[in-house]
């Protein structure tokens, strides 16, 4: 069936209107339906961002059960560095600065879990400069895991080599661990 408005595109929407007991039916395509105002979209459709802010607001319904005092506390959660408030963050879905992660830390775990399929920890790249101590830590952790596996499979010769690597690392760089401020 073709659209009754433009007679070009196929009709995909069938609208039934009842005004003063008068029933009218229109078959119309999406483009014409938008023009005629039968359907409306928010600006540029429904974005991932809308979905997200929806997710962030999931604890809203809990708020109704909170006391006045608790409510104020929630509202006042604000980043000391950039001034972003938690309610604004939920609205725009964006952090204002790196420090926001700390400022809102108590509220973020469930959000990360929702957005990242239950994950809350980073397992990837470590920046060279910001994380020189961290890289060493990670290297040691990897070696220890490798060592454990080698011992379990009784590959003792290999295991000894890995053990020596761990010792060398531990001897060489004791300081970075202590200097790790992040």
């Amino acid at each position: 069936m073709e659209c009754q408005e433009c007679h070009e595109r196929p009709a995909t929407l069938h609208v039934k209107q009842v005004i003063n007991d008068q029933e009218t039916k229109v078959s119309i395509c999406e483009t014409c339906a938008k023009k005629k105002g039968y359907i409306t979209y928010p600006e540029e459709g429904y974005s991932l961002h809308d979905l997200l802010t929806g997710l962030f607001n999931f604890d809203n319904f809990n708020m109704t059960n909170m006391s006045e005092n608790q409510l104020n506390q929630v509202k006042e959660l604000q980043c000391s560095k950039c001034g972003m408030t938690f309610s604004k963050f939920k609205q725009v879905g964006k952090f204002g600065c790196a420090h926001c992660y700390e400022s809102f830390a108590s509220k973020l775990e469930p959000i990360f879990r929702r957005v990242h399929s239950g994950n809350t920890k980073h397992f990837g790249k470590i920046p060279k400069r910001a994380g020189s101590g961290l890289q060493l830590k990670k290297q040691l952790k990897n070696y220890r895991e490798e060592l454990q596996q080698l011992i379990e499979t009784e590959a003792f010769e290999e295991a000894a080599k890995v053990r020596d690597k761990i010792r060398a690392l531990e001897k060489g760089d004791k300081e970075p661990e202590a200097g790790d401020e992040s």
């Binding site: 952090f95 992660y101 959000i111 990360f112 980073h122 397992f123 790249k125 920046p127």
Partner: peptide, 18 residues
Amino acid sequence: YAYDETKGYLTSCPTNVG
């Protein structure tokens, strides 16, 4: 870079963090 040991690279949107 903005980086945290447990959260990784700190991005503006929570969908990119890590």
